[in-house]
Nucleic acid binder design. Structure first.
Length: 290
DNA sequence: AGGCAGGTGGCCA
DNA sequence: TGGCCACCTGCC
């Protein structure tokens, strides 16, 4: 049923804790640890298992019949076909000791290239929820509304599928007040089938403005969706964690969210989103330890 | 056991 | 603009 494990040789070293931060650090919500070493993840109709063998060897396995396609999608999803070092070098680590520290703590940490439609859905679930609970909502959405892509494994529902269900059905997925946002967005996307394509095609500021016309999408969600789902790398999502980091490590207490967002974009520049991911990983880890 | 969490929208000054 | 509050649900 599943292919034999095959090794991907990584050009940038990726320790296990960095891999786990990529898969389960709040960018995506459909990766689960299935043994001491292995992770299983789903995006669109892709289902794959990963097993870190060493910091430069990552093994993968997928269901036999679609393995070739899934492998190609995996490389793109993890951006393994693109150099991380070049982006990192553009960040202001030379003059920013805290960023420099975070970069050292999580070697190889990357941004995922997720499908826009799924990123929008998962981040509509994210408001005032912890990662574990967001994962549970996604799991219920998949199980209750999404198509089965493998025995016992369901993908997330498409927006068309959501549009054809009911708000009540969505409430049954433990979405709470997020259910009405998601249902309304589904109707809007049904009326404007090209909406997400357009968002992807235009510049970051325009894309953000456009996304924020959707109910349930404010600045933070828009930035996450654009960063993780549309490769708009200048997006700098400011959530409570990043706000904490900026306050404490960058001495910006008293700044409001709008100001913090602007600071991030100006200070970190073209790859602000990548910097955000490193700061975020550090802040989460630090918080867990105390 | 109950406060609180990867926010957003609406209402008020 | 800026501040406050309701909104669902389930983890810690």
């Amino acid at each position: 049923m599943w292919t034999d494990w095959e090794t991907i040789k990584l050009s940038n070293p990726l320790p296990v804790h960095s891999l786990e931060e990529i898969l389960d650090g709040g960018q995506a919500f459909r990766w689960n640890k299935i043994s001491d070493t292995d992770w299983q993840g789903i995006w669109l109709s892709n289902l794959v298992r990963l097993r870190p063998l060493s910091s430069t060897n990552l093994a993968w396995s997928a269901p036999q019949k679609e393995a070739d396609k899934i492998y190609a999608n995996l490389i793109s999803y993890l951006s393994l076909d693109h150099s991380l070092e070049k982006s990192i070098d553009q960040l202001p680590w030379r003059s920013d000791p805290h960023l420099s520290h975070c970069l050292k703590q999580f070697p190889g940490l990357r941004l995922l290239k997720q499908p826009l439609e799924e990123t929008l859905l998962t981040f509509l679930c994210s408001a005032t929820k912890q990662i574990l609970q967001i994962k549970q909502m996604c799991e219920l959405l998949a199980r209750n509304i999404g198509t089965e892509i493998h025995p016992g494994i369901h993908r997330l529902p498409t927006w068309e599928e959501i549009a054809e269900t009911s708000e009540k059905q969505l409430r049954g997925c433990a979405l709470g007040f997020r259910a009405s946002y998601i249902f309304k967005v589904a109707q809007l996307l049904k009326d404007q089938p090209k909406f997400l394509k357009q968002v992807e095609a235009v510049s970051y500021p325009l894309a953000k403005e456009r996304l924020m016309t959707l109910p349930g999408v404010g600045e933070k969600v828009a930035d996450c969706v654009l960063l993780f789902g549309a490769q708009k790398q200048e997006a700098f999502p400011v959530d409570t964690w990043i706000a904490k980091t900026l306050e404490r490590r960058y001495r910006l207490s008293g700044w409001n969210k709008k100001q913090l967002t602007q600071f991030g974009q100006i200070h970190f520049g073209q790859y602000a989103g990548l910097a955000q991911q490193y700061l975020f990983a550090w802040e989460r880890t630090h918080h867990k330890q105390k």
